[in-house]
């Protein structure tokens, strides 16, 4: 299966990746090759096979006791943020 620059645009938007117009055909060609490569999966006979989401099947989710274990770390955690004001993370104005 071959992907077009338009497909790349759609995917890049879903993934919120800014790519330039010059890059689009390059990604289209790269992704087409990758998709073509993985298309060989279609050959496998998988009727009735349960999809495997985890390498250790049979294990189940362990549960945590409902306890507050985390203290306020805002000051430390926000040192990595580019824009903070009054304890809030800032993003460009969102209009709803």
């Amino acid at each position: 299966m071959s992907l077009t620059s338009r497909d790349v645009e759609k995917i890049a938007h879903l993934a919120r990746l800014g790519i330039t117009d010059q890059e689009k055909p390059v990604y289209a060609s790269n992704l087409s090759k990758i998709v073509e490569f993985v298309d060989q999966l279609a050959r496998a006979r998988t009727d009735g096979v349960t999809p495997m989401a985890h390498p250790l099947e049979g294990l189940t989710q362990r549960l945590r006791a409902d306890e507050v274990t985390e203290a306020d770390g805002r000051e430390k955690y926000q040192r990595n943020a580019a824009a903070v004001q009054a304890g809030l993370y800032l993003v460009p104005k969102v209009i709803e």
Binding site: E67, T69, E70, Q78, G87
Partner: peptide, 24 residues
């Protein structure tokens, strides 16, 4: 619950912003 669904941060309402937001 006292703590969050996937982390040990408190769920109490009305705390100063981001003081009950842990690494998770």
């Amino acid at each position: 619950t006292r703590s969050k669904i996937f982390s040990g941060a408190a769920t109490a309402y009305g705390a100063p912003p981001n003081t009950q937001a842990c690494l998770v």
